[in-house]
């Protein structure tokens, strides 16, 4: 049991280091796209450690406690994350629904803490984040339930192994519509550009993060990196056939995250009502069509 917990924390640390370096590399890539030199690849580490070295202002115990709860909740979620088929901290507990439930703890902590700061922008940001979540969750869940119906299991490694056994027939190819839908949902989850509504630095002054500075902001940044790790690796396991070894995992992970970033950097920002309308229109329709095709008609490549 002890060794499992240690592996779990190892996975969380691995996710943090991986995502933070990849984030820095992506900032460099975006810089090159815009004909700039770009920052150092380890810039995100510098940012986070700088924030941790600053002095922080507290806005009451709810504010501080919420941050710790958010970070703790996300680290706890990350411990369940399978990296490859064999590196799983808690075998048989890597169920999809565990992630859905546990990630809510972190988000709840963040929402609580942001509301505890008393800034109206934070409340607007939290409200928008929840609205966006409502929007992308519906089509995403329909696609995931289709996958669970097809594979007969909701275990992440189970789904990944199912795809590998079928001769590398990933769900990305087997369910093309579902892949497109959940890629859009992934961009919404990561808060990338067209769906960046709840951060919106120029509009609501970075939304929920408006009152954070110093240590609390550093903790939120760590939490954000691990959240991105969880969401992207979920996507890798569900649609890209998981990973037999760690190299393949790194490759697939980097490909997905870089693609998301490249797409997000050519877009502007939607308004909140546009986000909701968008997700409830085409992605939802495509997801339902995909579910009908895959489950009732059985047309799976």
């Amino acid at each position: 049991m002890m060794i499992n917990i240690l592996i779990g924390f190892g996975v969380a640390l691995f996710g943090f280091v991986l995502q933070t370096s990849l984030g820095g590399i992506n900032r460099k890539i975006i810089g090159r796209l815009q004909k700039r030199y770009g920052p150092k690849w380890y810039q995100e580490f510098l940012d986070i450690f700088k924030l941790l070295s600053k002095r922080a202002i507290s806005h009451g115990w709810l504010f501080d406690f919420g941050v710790i709860m958010a970070l703790g909740g996300i680290i706890a979620t990350a411990t369940f994350m399978p990296v490859t088929n064999s590196i799983v901290a808690f075998p048989n507990y890597d169920n999809f629904f565990i992630f859905v439930y546990l990630i809510a703890v972190g988000m709840l902590g963040m929402a609580m803490s942001a509301s505890g700061s008393g800034n109206p922008y934070a409340s607007i940001g939290v409200m928008r984040a929840l609205t966006t979540m409502l929007a992308y969750e519906v089509p995403f869940m329909i696609v995931i339930l289709t996958i669970i119906k097809l594979t007969g299991t909701s275990s992440i490694t189970g789904i990944a192994e199912f795809q590998q056994l079928a001769g590398n027939n990933w769900f990305m190819i087997a369910l093309p519509l579902g892949f497109i839908v959940s890629f859009m949902a992934l961009m919404g989850m990561l808060g990338k550009k067209p769906f960046e509504t709840y951060i919106a630095p120029a509009e609501i002054a970075s939304g929920p993060m408006v009152e954070y500075g110093g240590k609390q902001l550093g903790m939120l940044f760590i939490m954000h990196e691990i959240t991105v790790f969880i969401e992207v690796s979920l996507f890798v396991h569900l649609f890209l056939g998981g990973a037999e070894n760690i190299l393949i995992f790194l490759l697939k992970y980097a490909a997905v995250y870089t693609l998301v970033n490249l797409i997000s950097n050519v877009y502007g920002r939607f308004k909140i009502d546009q986000v909701v309308k968008f997700f409830y229109k085409w992605p939802l329709l495509l997801a339902i069509v995909q579910a009908v095709i895959a489950v009732y008609l059985g047309w799976v490549i």
Binding site: R27, G31, L46, Y212
Partner: peptide, 20 residues
């Protein structure tokens, strides 16, 4: 800030609020 001098290579960037 933009491609002519590129402040970001020094690690500098704009932030939204005084706290950050």
């Amino acid at each position: 800030m933009t491609s002519a001098y590129d402040m970001e290579r020094l690690g500098m960037g704009p932030m939204a609020t005084p706290r950050q």
